[in-house]
Nucleic acid binder design. Structure first.
Lengths: 213, 213
DNA sequence: AGGTTAACGGAACTCCAGACCCGTTAGCCA
DNA sequence: TGGCTAACGGGTCTGGAGTTCCGTTAACCT
């Protein structure tokens, strides 16, 4: 989000001339959009304000992104491209805890937390934005799924364990807490999420139903 | 939501004359708001449209609720008052599964699912609406917490288990799935959430850190 | 059963988000 | 390195969300 933006990939496929200036404008607008979303939330976001922050013409923002949800969708596509490295600790509980702590730190950060809330709100309002959000989380889940497969190889988890489902189970209580309670997201909540998921995994709660023999 | 509305309690404490017509207007507007939210989502909701559906003057809606988020906050207060009975099955897994299935059915229903998404979106945009959402979930969690305490009494869960945390753990993966994936919320997902939570509970993952001896 | 006034509701007004027009800038290619 | 044109951007216009005004309705009280 906050550093360099990836390839200007999401400019429509047939588009000519996605070079220099266009990419610069996109980066500036997405950065500004992230700031504005974090500060004012989804409902109070206006594209003119984003344009002002990005030092870009209002017309440009309206033409390229059109709506607030359209802009958020592109922001999510951009966010999906910037991936942080996964740490490997050698045990399932260790890896899940590392993941939980990463999510917890992200959501507990005032700016990032507000940004994620805003992005989720936007996704509930527009199918295309929802798709972009789904792709974002799909990327994140895929990045971490290998640690579950390794746990299966080590015998820490039963064969047939659904890796994606395990990774989602770690994040779920953190997001649920962020959205539905006033309690702060502390590291203890992250550790609890990881421990609970590890216990349920060992107990076989995430084993995929096997195909009929 | 869809049947009779509770007491007109949330009309400001000092308010005189909350009887007859006023209560009728509130009920009509909240019903209309629920419909409009479910159909058009949070972003496309306009108060004039709600007034039209409720067959009530625009002015009335603007005066009493002011903003979309204010209206949603009142809707949530109303939703918190209508509670459905909790079933008791005699086992922790049975009770958690009943809870998970209830949540799953609610979120899988097109209207209710859309309504919950919209309500969550609204809560991310306004602190007062967020408070109302927190109260709503607090009520629901409190209704179900006794089943965990009963499980502790029966010896199915360790002493010191945090009942609220267990109940939240059941809903969390269902909401997470609703918001971040395109996959449908089927009964299997509910059963998995209940089974995982029961396993983690038995393993002691939700035992509160005991106060220093 | 009649007076008081909280609350409702139609209509006219304000204001700004978003659309449109058209001149300007700067990638891209011969 | 110069021409072509995609993309940018200032200025202006407009529809509709939200506000204000004031007359009307119907709860509540004695």
């Amino acid at each position: 989000m906050n550093a360099e933006h990836g390839t200007p990939a999401s400019a429509e496929p047939g588009t000519l001339r996605p070079g220099g200036r266009t990419a610069r404008v996109r980066a500036a607008v997405l950065d500004a959009a992230g700031d504005a979303l974090a500060e004012q939330g989804f409902a109070h976001l206006d594209l003119a304000d984003v344009a002002r922050r990005a030092e870009v013409g209002r017309t440009t923002v309206y033409r390229r992104w059109g709506t607030v949800t359209g802009l958020v969708a592109d922001l999510l596509t951009d966010m999906a491209e910037s991936s942080l490295p996964r740490s490997e600790t050698g045990s399932l509980l260790g890896d899940l805890t590392a993941n939980a702590r990463l999510v917890q730190r992200t959501l507990a950060d005032p700016r990032q937390g507000a940004l994620f809330r805003a992005v989720i709100a936007a996704a509930t309002c527009e199918p295309r934005t929802a798709e972009a959000l789904h792709r974002f989380y799909d990327v994140r889940v895929r990045e971490w799924a290998p640690c579950v497969r390794q746990a299966v190889d080590r015998g820490e988890a039963p064969a047939g364990t659904d890796a994606h489902e395990v990774i989602r189970a770690v994040s779920a209580p953190l997001y649920y807490r962020l959205l539905t309670t006033a309690e702060p997201l502390d590291p203890a909540a992250a550790d609890r999420a990881a421990a609970a998921t590890a216990a349920a995994t060992r107990a076989g709660a995430y084993v995929r139903p096997s195909p009929a023999p």
